Simulated assay, not measured.
Amino acid sequence: MCRWMAYTGSPVIANDLLFRPEHSIIVQSLRANLGHVTNGDGFGIGWYGTGADETPALYKSAHPAWNDENLREIASNIRTPLLFAHVRASTGTPIERSNCHPFRHGRWLWMHNGSLANFEVVKRDLRMAVDPALYPEIIGSTDTETLFYLALTFGLTEDPPTAVARAVGLVEDVGRRHGVEYPVHMTVATTDGETMWVFRYSSEKATSSLYYSNDAEQVRRLYPDLEVLDQLGPDTRFVVSEPLRDLPGAWTEVPEASWALVRGGENHIHPFQPSSP
């Protein structure tokens, strides 16, 4: 399984998000505490500038994140209010840049930890369900990119929770027609650059871990001597596969089978239920 982190808040230098935490996403690429997997099959970051209508930028590589000197070079020169970062452990598709997360469509980013079970069996049926106008944009071979374009087909840019519910419902329908008992395992993050939506769901109800950071002021009161917290604005939120620092009271687990809207330092959690499209 992969590992990912998402940040939204006041603009910060990407280096502070990617490298500075004691259990940063770069550290997790080599040794994840909760996943017990080396995530060395490529990585990617996606970020937004401070312009109102700016398309997100991507930097992705098939190399391990811990061994990419260019990542540290550019991270020191990126200032962003919203960043996605992902380190990959392949579930069978090739280790190449086109298969690294995040994936982009216009202003939208998408990343995923998990898998669509027996993807090689259900792949044809799922991809044939993608809107023909969107299909030419698929450039990789992963289940994640397919799920993204299914969500776009079902209206991600207008209503993300409903679109993801329909996409997951389709995957479960197709999978079970092919004899797959548990077709979906996912933690997903997607954003339009202003709002984040995150999802935690699996068909077997045993989804990989996912956490969000608590209110920055609350965390500062718990740890007044931790200077790094002084840099976090009141609208700061992290959503992560596993905590970036061992700070009891700073993190809350996203419940199983739920989705959350994250914006302006707030997060609102709702139950998630797939629906057959």
Rank of each mutant, 00 (worst) to 15 (best):
G35N: 10
H36I: 08
V37N: 12
D41G: 04
G42E: 02
G44E: 03
G44D: 08
I45W: 01
G46S: 05
G46D: 08
W47Q: 01
G49Q: 01
T50S: 15
G51R: 12
G51F: 00
D53Q: 13
E54H: 09
E54Y: 00
P56F: 00
A57M: 14
L58I: 09
L58F: 03
K60H: 03
K60F: 02
S61E: 03
H63G: 09
A65W: 00
A65R: 00
W66A: 15
N67K: 09
E69I: 08
N70P: 00
N70Q: 14
N70A: 12
L71P: 04
R72C: 03
E73M: 07
I74H: 01
S76C: 13
N77S: 15
R79I: 13
T80L: 08
P81Y: 13
L82N: 10
L83K: 07
F84C: 00
A85C: 07
H86E: 03
V87P: 04
R88Q: 07
A89S: 14
T91A: 09
G92R: 11
T93L: 01
P94E: 13
P94M: 10
I95Q: 12
I95W: 00
E96L: 13
E96Y: 05
R97Y: 00
R97A: 12
S98W: 00
N99A: 07
N99E: 05
H101N: 06
P102L: 11
P102E: 12
F103N: 09
F103V: 10
F103G: 06
R104V: 12
G106Y: 02
G106H: 06
G106Q: 12
G106V: 02
R107K: 14
L109C: 04
L109Y: 10
W110V: 12
M111F: 12
M111H: 14
G114R: 04
S115D: 15
N118M: 13
N118V: 02
N118L: 12
F119H: 02
V121G: 00
V121Q: 14
V122N: 07
V122E: 03
K123I: 01
L126R: 07
L126K: 08
R127D: 09
P132V: 13
P136K: 02
P136R: 03
P136E: 08
I139F: 07
T144P: 02
T144W: 08
L150V: 06
L150S: 04
T153S: 14
F154N: 07
G155C: 08
L156W: 01
E158P: 00
E158Y: 11
D159M: 05
P160G: 05
P160T: 07
P161A: 12
P161E: 13
T162M: 10
A163M: 09
V164I: 15
V164N: 06
A165Q: 09
R166I: 02
R166N: 10
A167W: 06
A167V: 07
V168P: 04
V168F: 10
L170R: 06
L170M: 12
V171I: 14
D173C: 04
D173P: 01
G175Q: 04
R176K: 13
R176L: 11
R177Y: 06
R177Q: 15
